[in-house]
Design a protein around this nucleic acid. Structure first.
Length: 424
RNA sequence: GGAGAAAUGGCAGAGCGGUCGAAUGCGGCGGUCUUGAAAACCGUUGUCCUGCUAUCGUGGGACCGGGGGUUCGAAUCCCUCUUUCUCCGCCA
């Protein structure tokens, strides 16, 4: 959520920047400023009356004490109309505050200067690539065939137990999954992140804090009886830890990492490119989150990008890093880097990580602030997060790229974690 | 799930209808003293909205778990929700 101050003071800048995201904010901004103006006028009127009221009440207090009952009764008379007016003004105030908020919430985050204008994936900027793309023989299998061949992931069993998109990992498949989770967590801890295990059900306030609610309600599974939501990413609980928190600047950046299962409804998105592990309703992901000082949050972003790059290269996967254009970026992000790995049998790039700086956009919703030493004013922190990494497509690429006559070779770094070096 | 008790500032803990943003202690910050430190002493100490001011500031309003109500006036009374504790039951 953008701050009202920013809109008030830099109206044209806001409109201008949002054009990069192909968002026309002109009308909304005018509406917000109008509502805000009225809100402030009423606020000050209301405060004035409240001050009068407080004064009279105090006077009545001392009159009562001194036994001047008649005077007190007279003063009471005066308060009745005042009280009525305060009541109606504060009702309008609440309505206006809500209106301002509903309007502001509709505005996406401003993209960073470096973000290019663009409409979709074709306009993203290829920052760099790494690893080498393997050439497989014609007999190479897709990961969904390899999975069947070696019986390591069972989709049909998942359908029996739950439904489509809830696979059962079996034998070496389950071991590989667990190995990857441990590897990713260990790497993050080595890089200075604190490991957390958060709840995977969250309440409405948390859903609002990170921006899933109220709009993207349909993307989350909802436990109606208790009004909880299954998390679509660990970002939700891990970032919401800092909701309504004021941090010390010495403690920044806060670096947390968490493994959680992630749940996504993704209604209606089943089609050609979503076979096998490409898109699931439940999947595993290790997420890194940083709460940073606004003055150096982009250094944190670079650091996170290098961390993720380290992971894919250690796994010996061919990858590329894209800086997303305005049109392809999420609503909440100011800058996003996507990581894609090459899946040799499908012959296409698969997105395995998205690393973003949200600047103060989430922090404003979360009311997460910090104070610099010696400063009086609290400022909003910057929040950042990134997948490090999402498992299913990593598994897909590993299976496809590493297939041999003998079986699927496990990358060197994973062997201590899997306890085996080939799936056959 | 049943019965009872409670929720106050960074923490501990008073206040139970008016002068309470809130005693007191601890902690934090600034100072005096000291070569330095400790002790002692003095001062200071939250958040949000808003007006004025170039700035230091300063005026007003709100906040004592959340929401609602009673009252001229609520931390204090009433309703409701949430959470915590104690006892009982159930349970991995």
């Amino acid at each position: 959520m953008l701050t009202i101050n920013l809109i008030r003071e830099n109206k044209d800048f806001v409109i201008e920047r949002l054009r990069i995201k192909n968002f026309d904010a002109a009308e909304a901004v005018e509406k917000i400023l109008g509502l805000d103006q009225t809100r402030r006028e009423i606020q000050s009127k209301c405060d004035q009356m409240q001050a009068d009221m407080n004064r009279i009440s105090k006077e009545i207090g001392s009159m009562m004490k001194e036994g001047r009952k008649d005077e007190a009764a007279l003063a009471k008379e005066k308060t009745y109309s005042l009280k009525e007016e305060i009541r109606s003004l504060s009702e309008r105030l609440v309505i206006l505050e809500n209106e301002v908020k509903t309007e502001i919430i509709k505005l996406p985050n401003l993209p960073h200067n470096l973000v290019a204008h663009g409409h979709g994936a074709e306009d993203n900027i290829n920052v760099r690539e790494g690893g080498s793309i393997p050439v497989l023989p014609g007999t190479a299998l897709s990961h969904w065939d390899l999975i069947k061949k070696y019986d390591i992931i069972d989709f049909d069993l998942g359908i029996k137990l739950t439904g489509a998109g809830f696979p059962v990992y079996k034998g070496k498949g389950a071991r590989l999954e667990r190995a990857l989770i441990s590897f990713f967590l260990d790497e993050a801890v080595k890089a200075g992140y604190t490991e957390l295990m958060p709840p995977i059900l969250v309440n409405e306030d948390s859903g609002f804090g990170t921006g899933q609610l109220p709009d993207k309600e349909g993307q989350m599974y909802h436990v109606g009886l208790d009004n909880y939501y299954l998390i679509p990413t660990a970002e939700v609980p891990v970032t919401n830890i800092y909701r309504d928190v004021i941090l010390d600047s010495e403690n920044l950046p806060v670096k947390n990492v968490a493994y959680t299962p992630c749940f996504r409804r993704e209604a209606g998105s089943w089609g050609a490119h979503v076979r096998g592990l490409n898109r699931l309703h439940q999947f595993d992901k290790v997420e890194i989150v940083q709460i940073a000082h606004p003055d150096n949050s982009y250094e944190c972003l670079d650091q996170m990008v290098s961390h993720v790059e380290g992971l894919v290269s250690k796994l010996e996967l061919p990858y590329r890093i894209l800086r997303l254009c305005g049109g392809d970026m999420s609503f909440t992000s100011a800058m996003t880097y996507d990581f894609e790995v090459w899946s040799a049998a499908q012959k296409r790039w698969l997105e395995v990580s998205s690393v973003s700086n949200f600047e103060s956009f989430q922090a404003n919703r979360l009311k997460c602030r910090f104070r610099d030493k010696g400063e009086k004013q609290n400022r909003l922190v910057h929040t950042l997060n990134g997948s490090a990494l999402a498992l299913p497509r990593i598994v897909a690429a590993l299976l496809e790229n590493n297939q041999t006559e003998q079986g699927i070779a496990i990358p060197e770094v994973l062997k201590p974690y899997t306890g085996f070096d080939i799936i056959n």
